[in-house]
């Protein structure tokens, strides 16, 4: 299909989608209206049980099975990314023996700010996970913050420093344990918001570290020229 034909097909189908979407949108209840059937059925229960963060408790109680599915998607995607990028790495290692990671040319400004920021962001991540039950935040957000905080050490220093403080097998087992714990909690003890928050935080953080580790390998592993 040539580019012109493809664009033509898109314009036709896009116009169709636009018309149908607009027709559907004007039939929706008004923006900001008071008719929220799902919320109205959930809220009285949440208020009766003195839940501080209704969103967390919906995610881990009412929608616990959905969240379980989501966690499994997360694990599957992380696993798939690791597998896809690993074969390539094996090829590279067969082709030549010695490898090194790309040079570290970091300006002092970057280095200092990175090192100063790292502990603050780590603590913030823990805070977001731990207080997800009470205040805005929770396992997802905190897990992402924790997972990305570790990589500041690369932004501030260089790759070997990151590799030292980030033992991959530990994160692999962390991911597996967190996923297992979460499946157990979701199937048997749904509603344990605090425990599930922690499990999700661990799972998301570990999955993120694993995926990013593979991307780092792809981007920075260079063959040493003899």
């Amino acid at each position: 299909m040539s580019r012109r034909v493809r664009l033509l097909v898109f314009l036709l189908s896009g116009a169709g989608v636009a018309v149908l979407f607009t027709l559907a949108a004007v039939r929706l209840p008004d923006f900001g209206g008071t008719w929220h059937p799902y919320g109205e059925r959930t809220l009285p229960n949440a208020i009766r049980r003195h839940t501080p963060n209704v969103i967390s408790s919906i995610n881990f109680d009412q929608r616990a099975f959905d969240t379980l599915g989501e966690e499994l998607i997360l694990m599957a995607a992380a696993l798939a990314a690791v597998v896809i990028l690993r074969t390539v790495r094996a090829e590279q290692e067969d082709a030549a023996g010695a490898h090194a990671y790309g040079p570290a040319e970091v300006s002092d400004a970057l280095r200092i700010t990175g090192y100063l920021l790292l502990p603050v962001i780590m603590v913030t991540g823990v805070y977001v996970v731990a207080h997800g039950y009470i205040s805005p935040g929770g396992g997802f957000q905190g897990g992402v913050v924790l997972g990305s905080a570790i990589h500041l050490i690369y932004l501030a220093g260089d790759y070997p420093a990151l590799a030292r403080i980030r033992p991959i097998p530990m994160f692999e087992s962390g991911e597996a344990v967190a996923a297992g714990v979460f499946v157990l909690l979701a199937l048997a003890f749904a509603g344990q918001v605090k425990a599930m928050n922690a499990a999700v935080g661990l799972e998301v953080g570990c999955a993120l570290v694993l995926v990013l580790a593979k991307f780092f390998e792809q981007a920075l592993l260079v063959r040493k020229d003899a």
Binding site: I121, V145, A149, L152
Partner: peptide
């Protein structure tokens, strides 16, 4: 915090 880390 994170917008700064992102620009790093």
């Amino acid at each position: 915090l994170l917008s700064f880390a992102g620009s790093l």
